[in-house]
Design a protein around this nucleic acid. Structure first.
Length: 715
DNA sequence: GTTAGGGACGCCGGT
DNA sequence: CGTCCCTAAC
């Protein structure tokens, strides 16, 4: 060995007196740090990046280089001699994980392949694959999406003998939510019921019984839902000392991004992962906590210093992203919130355009304005990829979508319907899921219900018949690995007579899928299902069969990059549409399209120009939050996130009228968040009420329009 | 027992 | 506007 460098860190933090040595192989002794940290980071960032081991809280305001700090921290640790496999980098979204890993790769020069980085859920899946047996699962478990888990839960409500018609019982969605919240917040269902006062307090016992049945069913089917990826991971760490010690030893440095979005189970997981060594760095911004509805508790970040006594605290407050004008609006927007760390974002950039306040008559005029302005800005040389339209809810984008389509403005939308949750995608993947995990009852039923003449009833019978046949086959084979196709043939005896030809086709297809030459190659498996069965089925079933088949072909192409079936299926379950798309075209940068996105999905992104639309009371803040002070505070944080996405230009738009099918045309109050901004921080742009054409509005400072009606009260 | 068609209803957000 | 549930016909 040519040499190794030893890094000793002692005398620091709570590890006073404890000296650790890290060895990196294959580099010359005493290798100097390749990256000039002091030159590439500001003093606040540098302090965090070079922080001594031990607990550290980094409070990084919007646009202050949070990701930069975290990636440099990883690079720094690696350069200091910490082996990449000793690091764990947890993020909240797949997007953040991908970005972070990409930047680390760039910085360090080559991909630190043994560095573990990803979302809590994906890391959980990874850990559980290795230890599933310890929890009564097999390593080939499949993952339920929301739809699947609600379907299973529905079965459990029935199995619990609850007659939902004669007894008032919450809907499955509500039961699912209760179970999920209970898991994520680590509280009992009774507590949740009392907290919500929904009137179902008396149903506590029944709901708990359903929850227990649901857990048992999942285990029997060898499937996990999203929450299990966290809950079972934590159980593993809590109950099995060997596993706990193994991961605590392995991950000597744990880093967590977006810590303000962690919920109880996630912060417990973090505690369990770092154990006694406490080399934990968490990064976040309490003002950007926007996931309380799924149990995120920004108290986690507020209380971090209490939870980890002696934690070093770093504040990074220089904002490099936005103009001072935009930052002033951001600071004004968040000021009304009472519960937050005091912090002051300091602008680093020079002055720019004052953010625009754009009252519109209705959503249609608003869409016209956005489209028109996009075209103008594009002509001024701003790339379409640098522009975004942000909104509270998916359906707010409808008019803008139509207007962009009409005018031929290229855009990408983070669609409300998830690609992987569409019927045709789920139909085909059910075949793959079931061959990967023949215990998966839901996938089996989805698959067989596609056949003509087979409904829920026949599906149930076939499932039972298959189970019996397969048990026999396994016993005869003397193991656990009998092929499933022969058992399917046997089960076919209980299929309705008229479905016999289809059943023969299905068993033949499954036999082919099981063939070692095909099994485990997801792209080939998808194509096989398409050819053998689904193309015909789609033609007969869907009006837009051609489009759906095209999407399935795309799915096959996407699947081509996966070496194993399990990897592919896991990825399918954990990635949403947009992320999969982003992965697919990661190398092409033909991204010259305006982005239409919910604020939630735009978190962590930045754009030259941001159009925030539908800023009306009941839309943003959403109607459901109006009665609840803490919900309003969360909406306000969401608004803060919206504003801080903008680098150069920000347009705050709202319609004065809103059409709902329930109440027809209604007057809409502008969002309270707009009222909270001092009026001199914004420039009012008045659109002509007669509709839109080029230059139809006052464009302060751009000379593009006439200043007619400027300053006029829009009401 | 299955499927097709009509009527009611809801509509935040994401792993 | 689409989904879901219920009912009536195949």
């Amino acid at each position: 060995m040519s040499g190794f460098c030893v890094v000793a860190w002692g005398e620091c933090g709570l590890n006073r007196g404890m000296t650790r040595e890290y060895v990196v192989h294959g580099v010359g002794g005493g290798m100097p740090l390749r990256i000039d940290y002091a030159a590439e980071l500001n003093p606040q960032q540098l302090a965090a990046v070079t922080a001594p081991p031990g607990p550290a809280l980094v409070l990084a305001g919007a646009g202050s280089g949070k990701t930069r700090t975290l990636t440099y921290r990883v690079a720094y640790l690696i350069e200091r001699g910490v082996s990449p496999e000793r690091l764990l980098l947890l993020t909240f979204t797949n997007k953040a994980a991908r970005e972070m890993m990409g930047r680390v790769t760039e910085l360090v020069g080559s991909e630190p392949s043994r560095l573990w980085g990803g979302t809590f859920h994906s890391i959980g899946a990874r850990v559980l694959r290795s230890h599933a047996e310890l929890l009564g699962y097999r390593p080939d478990f499949t993952i339920l999406d929301r739809e699947d888990s609600e379907a299973l839960l529905k079965v459990c409500v029935g199995a619990a003998g609850i007659d939902t018609k004669s007894v008032p019982f919450p809907k499955v969605e509500v039961v699912a939510d209760l179970i999920s919240r209970g898991t994520n917040e680590r509280v009992g269902i009774g507590t949740l019921l009392e907290r919500r006062r929904t009137g179902f307090e008396g149903m506590r016992g029944e709901i708990e019984r359903v929850a227990a049945l649901y857990a048992a069913r999942k285990q029997a089917a060898n499937v996990m839902d999203f929450d299990d990826l966290l809950a079972l991971w934590l159980r593993l760490m809590d109950e099995i000392a060997e596993v706990r010690e193994r991961y605590q030893r392995r991950f000597e440095f744990v880093m967590v991004d977006e810590y303000q979005d962690t919920n109880q189970i996630q912060s417990d997981l973090i505690d369990r992962l770092v154990g006694a060594h406490r080399h934990l760095m968490v990064v976040g911004d309490d003002s950007q906590s926007i996931y309380s509805w799924r149990g995120a508790n920004f108290r986690n970040i507020l209380d971090f210093p209490k939870r980890y006594p002696g934690a070093a605290i770093f504040k990074i407050e220089t904002n490099y992203r936005s103009t001072p004008e935009i930052l002033a609006v951001a600071n004004a927007a968040i000021a009304a919130n009472t519960e937050q760390f005091a912090k002051q974002l300091v602008a680093a950039r020079k002055s720019g355009m004052k953010p625009a306040l754009v009252p519109c008559e209705d959503a249609h005029q608003q869409a016209g304005f956005v489209a028109q302005r996009v075209v103008e800005l594009h002509e001024e040389g701003i790339g379409l990829g640098g522009m975004a339209v942000l909104y509270r809810s998916h359906f707010h984008a409808l008019e803008v979508q139509m207007e962009f389509t009409r005018r031929g403005i290229p855009f990408v939308i983070t669609s409300g319907i998830r690609f992987f949750e569409q019927a045709h995608i789920k139909d085909v993947t059910a075949w793959l899921k079931w061959t990967a995990n023949p215990a998966d009852e839901l996938s089996f039923k989805r698959m067989v219900l596609l056949l003509p003449g087979i409904g829920p009833r026949a599906g149930e019978k076939l499932w039972a018949a298959f189970g019996a046949a397969h048990e026999r086959a396994k016993a005869e084979a003397g193991g656990d690995t009998a092929a499933v196709a022969p058992s399917l043939v046997a089960a076919g005896a209980s299929a309705p007579r008229k479905s016999a030809p289809a059943w023969a086709q299905l068993t033949a297809t499954i036999a082919q899928l099981e063939d070692p030459g095909v099994f485990g190659r997801p792209a080939d498996m998808i194509r096989l299902v398409l050819e053998a069965f689904y193309e015909d089925y789609a033609e007969d079933t869907f009006a837009n069969a051609a489009q759906r088949l095209e999407e399935l072909n795309q799915l096959a192409t996407y699947a081509g990059q996966f070496a194993s079936l399990t990897d592919f299926l896991t990825q399918l379950s954990l990635l949403n549409n947009m992320e999969a798309e982003a992965e697919q075209r990661a190398d092409q940068d033909d991204e010259d399209r305006v982005r239409l996105s919910t604020v939630h999905q735009a978190k962590g992104l930045e754009f030259d120009v941001v159009f925030a639309i539908m800023l009306g009371e009941g839309l943003f803040p959403s109607g459901r939050s109006l009665e609840d002070a803490s919900a309003i505070e969360e909406e306000r944080r969401l608004f803060y996130v919206t504003v801080t996405r903008a680098k150069d230009e920000l347009y705050l738009c709202y319609p004065l009228l809103r059409f709902t099918q329930a109440q027809g045309m209604q007057r809409l109050m502008p969002s309270r968040f707009l009222d909270e901004i001092r009026s001199d921080l914004l420039e009012v742009w008045n659109l002509r009420s007669s509709g839109l054409s080029a230059g139809a509005w006052a464009v302060p400072g751009l000379g593009g329009g006439q200043a007619d009606g400027k300053g006029e009260d829009p009401f």
